[in-house]
Amino acid sequence: MEELLNNPVFVSHVIAASGSVAIGTAIVYPLDTIKALIQVGASSRKKLTTGEVLGRVKAVSGYSGLYSGLSWLTLGRISSLGVRFGVYEILTAFYKDGRVDNYVHVSEALCAGMVSGALECCLNSPFEMIKLRKQVAAAIPIPTISNPATKPAPAPIISRLLPGYVPEKATLDRTVNLLSVLSSKNINMAEALKNCPWMMTGSGMLPEVTHVSRPLDIVRLEGWRSLWRNLRSGLARDSIFGGVFFGTWQFMQLAMLNWKAVGMDPPPETNDEVPPLSPFAVSLAAGFSGSLAAIASHSFDTSRTRSQCVVLPRYLAMERRLLKWRRPGNWFERFTGIHPADRNLLLRGVSARMARSGLASFALVGTYFIAVDHLVSNL
């Protein structure tokens, strides 16, 4: 490892890769925010448009809200994309071992891409969830109490699980009035209800996602496992995305190499004898592959995005495990983590995600080539 760190070529590639990931993520991040809000706000009766999403974000947090959570996604993608491309290169190196030229079949690229995408999902999942909560919080106003002097003291259970959160007093009073007709030995029923985890909001409903957007609040209320919530949909999404992306990209590169070799005299015997492709052509192929992969995996992306925006306290998750709660839906939905209520919403935001993935892949590969050429030439 020390030898690699002292190798200027290796360090140049690391710097170029990190910079290209940061630039590509920042360029397309508003599209990612729009896509996420369309998916989260989708319902069977109403379909959010891009204009409505922009209007809500502008009214709540201004246009800067489109970049809410950018730092978390950038931090996660620098490491996860390194795993995706690194594992892909390692697997394809085994495929190419012993062959005359550096030839990789499209099917081999697809399999290697699926494995690398699955590993990428496991690493990027916590950053993705925090990023998503930040995006949603930037589009939903948080109600404030006008008179801080009359702000009720938080109950012990709330102060432990969700510091700073105050239940709605009117809702809590309404619940107390409904239960007051029942016989109770507890003199102060309101304070007793506050100590029940399911009465945190005062109505028995779960807290809004806007109140559970910080990493510490997520861990306190929902536990560490929540950072990998609905990992099944994530694995299906990133496996399909990685397989289609690398498979399509390899197919297009082979097609461009064969087209370039048509006019050569004498005809090349291997692909290594063909002059390398231009960085623009490779970047364009990567952008098209990213768009196609986004379309193929979008249904699972919608399922995971919507599930990550549901606040599920750890005491409820523990009850589900103890009661051996059965996932709803048919066998395919249970296997992939798709909720049956989302069947008609799985394609919401597909155009935004297709544009985001295509532009991000194009910018990532293009800036990487430019940065590597500039850094290596100055060594």
Score class of each variant (00 low, 15 high):
320 R>T: 10
283 S>A: 11
130 I>R: 02
30 P>K: 10
231 L>Q: 15
220 R>T: 00
82 G>S: 02
222 E>N: 05
99 R>H: 00
175 T>R: 15
292 L>G: 04
198 W>P: 09
43 S>F: 01
38 I>H: 07
224 W>E: 05
18 S>G: 15
305 T>I: 13
142 I>N: 06
286 A>M: 00
333 E>L: 05
44 S>C: 07
337 G>W: 06
307 S>I: 08
34 I>P: 01
293 A>Q: 05
340 P>L: 00
216 L>M: 12
185 K>G: 15
141 P>Q: 08
68 S>H: 13
40 V>Q: 09
309 C>D: 02
212 V>T: 05
4 L>P: 00
245 F>Q: 10
285 A>F: 03
250 Q>F: 03
130 I>A: 06
264 M>R: 00
187 I>E: 15
368 Y>W: 11
209 V>F: 05
230 N>G: 11
159 S>W: 00
368 Y>H: 14
162 L>D: 00
191 E>L: 07
55 G>W: 05
237 R>A: 15
326 R>M: 07
303 S>V: 01
204 G>P: 09
80 S>G: 08
4 L>S: 14
189 M>Q: 15
19 G>F: 03
162 L>N: 00
298 H>F: 02
267 P>G: 03
91 L>F: 02
235 L>G: 08
168 E>V: 12
267 P>R: 02
295 I>C: 02
359 L>T: 03
357 S>I: 01
350 V>L: 04
2 E>T: 15
227 L>A: 08
331 W>L: 12
140 I>S: 03
306 R>S: 03
39 Q>F: 09
